[in-house]
């Protein structure tokens, strides 16, 4: 890219192409559209919102149907665990932003440091979730378990089903976000992502903030409303 013309901030409909410039030299025009990349990322995020939105609507519907079962089931979830994970994700969102700020200010090392910290917070979240789920499964509470099928009312079965589905899907997103961070780390090291071309890191950040956003709603809905 370094030897070719780059239209960084253009919003026009130019397409990538090639032709012959002065002196009959072949030039290649690489089209770069940061705005388009970001817009595409937002469109993707909206499909994610609707994916989780459907599950939130399901949660809401059954909450109205079984208010008391929801209350009782929520009592069994560990608020401390949930609150710690909330703080972990909120802080990871901050470090992700700081990584982008650092990169734009050309401090590559600081940017990489914050990216590693963000990755670490993601890993911490997953470890917490592992212990949380293990404790529940140990108590016989998991989808299709004897405990749920034979001793619990329908509303609690639905609550825990949604708990596993929604937090599971969310944790899957956390893991995907961590994988994306590994790629960003490599690209920053190789200079593919730099203080001028940071849109990939910015989009990774957008994805990570969405993961944080979803947890902001999951936490009160599952842990606090009892």
């Amino acid at each position: 890219m370094s030897t070719t013309s780059v239209d960084a901030h253009e919003h026009s409909n130019n397409h990538a192409g090639h032709g012959y410039g002065d002196n009959n030299q072949l030039y290649v025009h690489f089209h770069r559209d940061d705005y388009g990349s970001k817009f595409g990322m937002w469109l993707f995020l909206f499909t994610e919102v609707l994916l989780f939105g459907g599950l939130f609507i399901l949660y809401y519907g059954y909450r109205i149907a079984y208010p008391h079962d929801y209350h009782n089931a929520a009592m069994e979830l560990n608020i401390v665990m949930g609150a710690v994970n909330t703080l972990v994700l909120l802080t990871s969102s901050l470090t992700m932003v700081l990584s982008i700020v650092a990169l734009r200010r050309k401090s590559i090392k600081t940017s990489l440091f914050y990216l590693i910290v963000t990755f670490g917070f993601g890993a911490t979240f997953c470890v917490n979730k592992y212990f949380e789920w293990s404790a529940k499964i140990h108590h016989g509470i998991f989808p299709g378990s004897m405990e749920l099928r034979e001793t619990r009312p329908a509303g609690e079965v639905v609550f825990f089903g949604l708990y596993y589905l929604m937090t599971g899907l969310h944790t899957f997103h956390v893991i995907v976000g961590m994988v994306i961070m590994v790629f960003c780390f490599i690209f920053i090291r190789t200079g593919t992502i730099n203080s001028d071309k940071y849109i990939v890191l910015e989009n990774a950040g957008l994805y990570w903030h969405l993961v944080d956003l979803i947890w902001i709603f999951l936490f009160p809905l599952f842990y606090l409303l009892h």
Binding site: S93, V97, E202, L206, H209, L210, D212, L213
Partner: peptide, 8 residues
């Protein structure tokens, strides 16, 4: 707050 500031 997250959407406005963090997500820019």
């Amino acid at each position: 707050l997250v959407i406005n500031i963090f997500m820019h």
